[in-house]
């Protein structure tokens, strides 16, 4: 005899509840949380290094970095003087994204009262992190001109979810046959109206508008 039992639950309800708890805590402590996502190697760490250099010390910034195995990214980010917590995702039974409970634990290692902006460098992956809310205030996706122009249409969930896109490594454009207009067209098609910042984390070109956008978002939350 078979019996059907109604369940009707979000599969990720546990993560979603934890993310809401994080969000309340970050609001109480006056911290703006940015979730940074991209394919492996698009330039998250380099972009964040340069971004933090421009924000500090006026915007007190801390970083949580998810890395599958190494501490290389954490070491590079620590050079900026920002407190850095490294999360080795292997220890949490998955190496493709950071979940809300991982952020909660990592945040315990930071003095959040002395932080205005908490940046989370997620694991390099355009699929999995889109499914896991961590309690952030804004999400950005980094893509680089060394990747296919069609990344946005291949990963529409990620590009729709994000509040801004950073098109990185534009210093390499003269050496590539990358069709930048096509890539930007694809982003606009998937997420009309989303701000797109073209920049080079290496040379610093184009960083200004992005940093201004971020700073404005942080200040809007802190002054609310």
């Amino acid at each position: 005899m078979t019996q059907e039992i109604k369940v009707v639950r979000r599969v990720l309800a546990v993560n979603e509840r934890m993310a809401e708890q994080n969000r309340r805590r970050f609001a109480e402590q006056g911290v703006f949380v940015l979730n940074v996502m991209s394919s492996p190697g698009s330039g998250k760490t380099t972009t964040l290094q340069k971004t933090i250099e421009r924000l500090m010390p006026a915007t007190r910034t801390a970083v949580i970095v998810g890395d599958v195995a190494t501490t290389h990214d954490a070491d590079r980010l620590a050079v900026t003087g920002a407190p850095v917590v490294q999360v080795n995702t292997d220890a949490f039974g998955g190496d493709c994204h950071l979940a809300a409970h991982v952020i909660e634990k990592a945040a315990d290692d930071l003095d959040l009262d002395a932080v205005d902006l908490l940046i989370v460098e997620n694991v390099g992956n355009l699929v999995c992190p889109a499914e896991f809310d961590i309690g952030e205030d804004a999400r950005v996706v980094v893509l680089s001109v060394t990747e296919g122009e069609d990344k946005p249409v291949k990963y529409p969930t990620m590009f729709r979810l994000c509040d801004a896109a950073l098109l990185n490594k534009i210093d390499l454009l003269p050496h590539l046959d990358y069709d930048k207009a096509k890539a930007i067209g694809y982003i606009r098609q998937v997420h009309p109206g989303m701000p797109i910042f073209e920049l080079s984390a290496r040379t610093g070109e184009g960083l200004g508008p992005w940093v201004d956008w971020l700073r404005a978002r942080v200040e809007a939350k802190l002054n609310a």
């Binding site: 078979t2 019996q3 059907e4 039992i5 109604k6 639950r9 499914e131």
Partner: peptide, 9 residues
């Protein structure tokens, strides 16, 4: 991404 029901025997 929802579980609607389970069928139990």
């Amino acid at each position: 991404l929802d579980i609607v029901s389970i069928e139990v025997a």
